[in-house]
Computed example of a mutant assay.
Amino acid sequence: MKPIVLASGNKGKLVEFQQMFETQGIKIVAQSEYGVGDVPETGTTFVENAIIKARHAAEISGEPAIADDSGIEVDALDGQPGIYSARYGGPGAGAVDNYQKLLANMQDKSNRAARFRCVLVYMRHAKDPSPIIASASWEGSIAQGPQGGGGHGYDPIFWVNTDNCSAAELPPERKNALSHRGKALVDLLAQMKALGELPTGETS
């Protein structure tokens, strides 16, 4: 079975994908191992950006590729940051810059409802005309301030109502069960199995 390239430089995402796919006997490899760099995300939707990233990684690596485009949508901000979540804080901004800007923009907002959205695209090769697409969301709200040292991105300020803690305070197994990315991955794996894209039989 060929390895699958993850079209992302995000180490947190890489760990999550590896955890999910190793149970299927699939090796997920970071795009950097093939010399794949980031590609401009010129799409206007999560789906468009995920396809752009997956095609770029598959073209350069010569391997199948999976791309994730995800972000946080805040109702009081008309769905922002959305597809701009990773660069919300401006050029060169890191995760803390991004969520601090979001918290600042939420100071006078009473409606703190929000959700994480994730779209996953699997491309068998760079010219794949029918990539497999999965999507899911994770409902929650914006906390008053950051809590917890786990996770990545906006996790410290995303309040998980069902567990009464931030996403950054969840154990990895629990996060994978609840999260937008975890649910989208389950959907993606189911579609890949149905289409014969995963090995059959017992896996270690």
Rank of each mutant, 00 (worst) to 15 (best):
residue 1 M to Q: 09
residue 2 K to M: 08
residue 4 I to H: 09
residue 9 G to D: 08
residue 12 G to A: 07
residue 14 L to Q: 07
residue 16 E to N: 03
residue 16 E to W: 02
residue 27 K to C: 03
residue 34 Y to R: 13
residue 36 V to C: 06
residue 39 V to G: 00
residue 44 T to C: 04
residue 45 T to V: 05
residue 46 F to W: 06
residue 47 V to W: 03
residue 49 N to K: 13
residue 49 N to W: 07
residue 50 A to N: 09
residue 50 A to G: 05
residue 56 H to V: 08
residue 58 A to Y: 09
residue 62 G to C: 06
residue 62 G to A: 09
residue 62 G to S: 09
residue 63 E to A: 04
residue 63 E to F: 12
residue 64 P to V: 01
residue 68 D to Q: 11
residue 70 S to A: 14
residue 71 G to M: 04
residue 72 I to L: 15
residue 72 I to P: 08
residue 75 D to P: 03
residue 76 A to I: 04
residue 78 D to M: 05
residue 83 I to Q: 04
residue 86 A to D: 11
residue 88 Y to E: 08
residue 95 A to N: 14
residue 98 N to I: 09
residue 99 Y to S: 07
residue 100 Q to T: 14
residue 104 A to R: 08
residue 105 N to Y: 01
residue 106 M to D: 03
residue 107 Q to C: 04
residue 108 D to H: 13
residue 109 K to M: 15
residue 110 S to A: 14
residue 113 A to M: 06
residue 114 A to E: 10
residue 115 R to E: 10
residue 116 F to L: 07
residue 122 Y to A: 02
residue 123 M to C: 15
residue 123 M to Q: 15
residue 123 M to D: 03
residue 123 M to I: 10
residue 129 P to G: 06
residue 138 W to K: 05
residue 140 G to E: 12
residue 140 G to L: 12
residue 141 S to F: 01
residue 143 A to C: 02
residue 144 Q to N: 14
residue 144 Q to R: 04
residue 146 P to A: 03
residue 146 P to S: 06
residue 149 G to P: 00
residue 150 G to V: 01
residue 151 G to R: 10
residue 160 V to W: 08
residue 161 N to W: 00
residue 162 T to E: 15
residue 163 D to E: 15
residue 164 N to H: 15
residue 165 C to Y: 06
residue 167 A to E: 10
residue 169 E to A: 11
residue 171 P to I: 04
residue 175 K to S: 03
residue 175 K to H: 05
residue 177 A to H: 11
residue 181 R to A: 02
residue 182 G to H: 12
residue 182 G to L: 11
residue 182 G to F: 10
residue 183 K to V: 12
residue 184 A to D: 11
residue 185 L to E: 05
residue 185 L to P: 01
residue 185 L to F: 00
residue 185 L to K: 05
residue 186 V to L: 02
residue 196 G to M: 07
residue 196 G to K: 09
residue 198 L to R: 13
residue 204 S to N: 11
